[in-house]
Design a binder for these strands. Structure first.
Lengths: 269, 269
DNA sequence: TCTCACAGGTACGATGTCATATGTCACTAC
DNA sequence: GTAGTGACATATGACATCGTACCTGTGAGA
């Protein structure tokens, strides 16, 4: 995240985008473009932490919108934790540690700018820790109905093995049902907000094929069996092995320099 | 979260708050009050998922502010995932699964409305899973400098044993340094965003006392030693035992009916 | 029965104005 | 010389008003 593709030779916070021509696609709101541009400039490092955004009037000119839109957009960016608006002083870019990394726009920008995939590694590590824990909890949970849904989800996967898109959806559904059975709404929400982005940005080398789907199915079966056997430990191990294994098989480059935080580690639970 | 203190006999979405008197404290922005009120009404169930918020004009009257403030506030609430604004149709309350549970305002409202502490249990379970995993990663990490900071943080705690406030700060700092050593910025950000809320809302029965601090110190020492010994498994176990143990000692009511998702479970990693 | 124009309600966006907070700098009093 | 004061510029906060775009239901007409 520290590396910078495009050096900023001017050092001025003037946004390098939004030249002219507001395409103004019907049906899209003006604000989302502004928000995306600002978020991107911050995440990419064009606007460094501590620096000040151009005042509202300037932003109006740059983006070609009214102050209404600018004000709302900057406020939204503030809500994402990327800037801090101060009355009479201006708007400053905050420290990255305050950024809301789970926010959709922020997450997308970070992943897009994540040259060596280090952030995706963290994403997978986080997801692994949470899902493994929830699988273990689900195994010892007394929620019978939820467990039936896990079995049903596995069967659904098996039936969709000939349809890549539907298989992928069923795959996600299985994971969601396991998390639901754990009763941990917070963990489930976190993983779900991460999951789509991770999948969409994985830049698969090999897409789903027959062998991959078979293997996925087997690993899910292992998770399922451990949960049904009420074996928390085994469920966690199986889930951890499944997610880290799946990621390591898909991860484009082994990435020698930056150590993958936890995805590299063997399932130790 | 389903239980409702105050039944809503009318079933109308008219906000039951903001009667009159805009106190208008100097220095506070109007929007934050509006946001808090709306978020609270949604979380408390006064505004049910699927129902429609009053139109902007009505909200202006109810809160006694201009449309500018209302528009910005509702947009902020949308950013938290609690409502979905639709051009020409109005603003609808979304399904709770789409709520941003890590948002500060939302989290505060949920915890305040969390009658049987079930959400706090989930919070602790989530934190446990992440911190245990990060402790394990830190143990096998090659980041030497970060590990020195862990030792320094432990010493800092030891030196602050006579000052409750500073000890608590050092406590949090130790945890943060362990997470930093893991290199998992995402997990660290998630835990940090829920940590303060969890602590502040724990409604301690017994506050920090000498014995509690000693015990905390011992448990931190165990985590520290495991990390320094590069023993990932032991580090995870120690961290898990520390957090769940600390929570179970502080948790006010054992809560017979609703099973604590994972905090009850023994450290299995 | 179906289609389409229209009205009403809603959010979106622009513009202008004033209020308020903050920092700077020249000026003044000591 | 220094501290205090006040004018001023600049920034965001808030309001009021206007017009536009979008959605939905309704009723006239084919």
């Amino acid at each position: 995240m520290t590396r910078q593709f495009l050096a900023d030779p001017f050092g001025v916070p003037v946004a390098p985008v939004a030249e002219v021509a507001p395409p103004r696609v019907r049906g899209t709101k003006l604000g989302i473009n502004v928000v995306q541009q600002i978020v991107n400039d911050i995440v990419r490092g064009v606007l460094n932490p501590g620096s000040t955004l151009p005042p509202e009037a300037d932003l109006c000119d740059q983006f070609g919108v009214s102050r209404t839109v600018i004000r709302e957009s900057v406020k939204v960016v503030q809500e994402k934790g990327l800037v801090r608006i101060e009355h009479g002083r201006g708007t400053q870019v905050t420290d990255p540690r305050q950024w809301n990394l789970l926010d959709d726009v922020v997450l997308t920008a970070i992943i897009a700018h994540d040259a060596n995939l280090s952030f995706l590694d963290e994403l997978v590590a986080t997801r692994t820790a949470l899902e493994a824990d929830m699988a273990a909890t689900a195994a010892v949970s007394r929620a019978g109905e939820e467990k039936l849904r896990i079995s049903a989800a596995l069967e659904l996967m098996r039936s969709k093995i000939n349809n890549v898109a539907e298989f992928a959806a069923a795959d996600a559904h299985f994971h969601d049902m396991v998390m639901a059975a754990s009763g941990n709404r917070l963990g489930r929400a976190i993983v779900n907000s991460i999951h789509d982005k991770a999948r969409g940005s994985m830049r698969y080398h090999g897409e789903y094929n027959e062998a991959v789907m078979r293997r996925t199915l087997d690993e899910h079966q292992a998770v399922h069996d451990a949960i049904m056997a009420k074996n928390a430990e085994a469920a966690a191990v199986a889930m951890r092995a499944h997610i880290t294994g799946s990621w390591s098989r898909r991860r484009p480059v082994p990435d020698a320099d930056a150590p993958a935080p936890a995805a590299r580690r063997r399932a130790t639970r």
